[in-house]
Computed example of a mutant assay.
Amino acid sequence: MSKNMQVVILAGGRGTRLGRLTDDIPKPMVPIHGKPFLYYDLQMLKAQGYRDILILTGYLGKRIEEYFKDGVGLDLHIAYSHEETPLGTGGALKLAENKISGNFILMNGDTLFPLELHELVDFFYRQDRMGAIAVSKDPSCRPAFNITTNEDGLVKAYHKKLPSSGASYASGGVGVFKHDLLQTIPAGRPCSLEEDVYDILIRNHDLAAYVAQGPFYDMGTQERLKIIREFLAT
């Protein structure tokens, strides 16, 4: 069941903190060792047996579609949902509702979290909550710690914009969710998954935290890009 689950990738970001690098390409297409960053996420998914991919595009999304096409060249099946105007992470997910077939894995197209996805999926089904997100307590992620949990391992607070000194984990940009989540997102207007939707799940005790081993890699700044290049060169 796990390997048949659809993977939805949020890839609509512009990446303004990367300056001129994203003048003519979307953030997930920034090259790393001659390949777009998103290529490495897709390779990780294929290596673990996940081949049904839906990419949610926004800023210069055609560049992503032109490069990866239908995914056949990578032995994947790739479909797309494109937002014409910025809708936020939640709004982009809602827009794609009719292309999401059931419970799904959701991941950011600008982060790389090399974890065993089937273990996260198994955890999600054991918890039987609306969602489960992968978090890390690796010391290298410490400046970005933004998740606090309660004694039951449920997310108690998600500090989206500013890391919290009282937080115990960093959100790695990967989660598993029930299809019913899409019904809670308002249609036709901008909505943040992290700030709006997660807030509802947290208040309803419906978001579990899966503690994964090791760090994750975020390409949001020039310094983080350097770290990713080093990691992917090994």
Rank of each mutant, 00 (worst) to 15 (best):
Ser168Cys: 05
Gln183Leu: 12
Asn103Ile: 01
Ile32Trp: 07
Ser2Asn: 14
Lys69Asp: 12
Leu21Thr: 02
Thr57Gly: 08
Gly175Pro: 07
Gly175Lys: 03
Lys160Ser: 12
Lys3Trp: 05
Thr111His: 05
Lys156Leu: 13
Gly109Trp: 03
Ile228Asp: 00
Phe113Gly: 04
Lys46Val: 06
Ser101Pro: 00
Ser192Val: 11
Ala170Tyr: 04
Thr221Arg: 05
Glu151Phe: 01
Gly109Ser: 09
Leu112Gly: 02
Pro215Gly: 02
Gly188Gln: 10
Asp218Met: 03
Asp52Lys: 11
Asp128His: 08
Tyr59His: 14
Val176Gly: 03
Tyr125Cys: 01
Leu193Asp: 02
Ala167Pro: 04
Met107Cys: 13
Cys141His: 05
Asp206Val: 01
Arg20Val: 12
Thr16Ile: 13
Leu225Ile: 13
Leu38Asn: 12
Leu21Val: 00
Gly214Thr: 07
Leu117Ile: 15
Asp41Phe: 00
Leu181Met: 13
Leu201Ser: 06
Ala134Lys: 08
Phe104Thr: 00
Gln222Asn: 10
Asp70Thr: 11
Leu18Pro: 03
Ala134Trp: 09
Asp75Arg: 02
His159Ala: 12
Tyr67Ala: 03
Ser136Gly: 10
Glu223Ser: 13
Val155Met: 04
Tyr80Met: 12
Ala170Val: 12
Ser192Met: 07
Thr16Pro: 01
Tyr217Ala: 05
Ile105Glu: 08
Lys160His: 15
Met44Glu: 14
Pro36Gly: 06
Ile53Trp: 00
Arg229Asp: 13
Ser140Gln: 12
Thr111Met: 15
Arg224Cys: 05
Thr57Met: 08
Phe145Leu: 13
Leu93Asn: 04
Asn98Trp: 02
Arg51Pro: 00
Ile78Thr: 08
Tyr80Gly: 08
Ser165Trp: 09
Glu84Thr: 14
Gln183Trp: 06
Ala79Ser: 15
Pro215Cys: 02
Lys99Phe: 03
Leu45Tyr: 09
Ile185Gln: 06
Ala157Ile: 03
Arg63Gly: 02
Gly166Tyr: 10
Arg20Phe: 08
Val135Ala: 10
Ala96Glu: 07
Val135Leu: 10
Val197Ile: 15
Ile227Tyr: 09
Arg224Ile: 00
Leu87Met: 15
Ile185Asn: 08
Thr148Gln: 12
Lys62Thr: 11
Pro31Phe: 05
Ala132Pro: 03
Leu18Phe: 02
Thr89Arg: 04
Asp206Lys: 02
Ile9Glu: 05
Asn4Trp: 01
Asn98Tyr: 07
Ala208Met: 03
Glu97His: 03
Asp138Pro: 05
Pro139Asp: 09
Leu56Met: 14
Cys191His: 15
Ile78Gln: 08
Phe145His: 04
Phe124Glu: 00
Asp122Pro: 02
Gly34Gln: 09
Ala170Ser: 15
Thr111Lys: 13
Gly131Gln: 05
His118Ser: 14
Lys161Cys: 11
Gly131Ser: 07
Leu93Ser: 04
Ala167Ser: 15
Ile25Val: 15
Ser140Arg: 12
Ala233Gly: 13
Glu195Asn: 13
His179Thr: 04
Met29Ile: 05
Leu60Ile: 07
Thr85His: 13
Gly88Ser: 11
Lys161Ile: 13
Leu120Ser: 07
Asn204Pro: 00
Phe216Ile: 02
Leu115Ile: 15
His205Pro: 00
Lys160Ala: 14
Met44Ser: 14
Lys161Thr: 14
Glu195Thr: 10
Val30Arg: 12
Phe123Pro: 01
Leu87Arg: 10
Ile25Phe: 06
Tyr217Leu: 09
Gln48Asp: 02
His77Pro: 00
Leu120Ala: 07
Ala134Val: 09
Cys141Ile: 06
Ile100Glu: 04
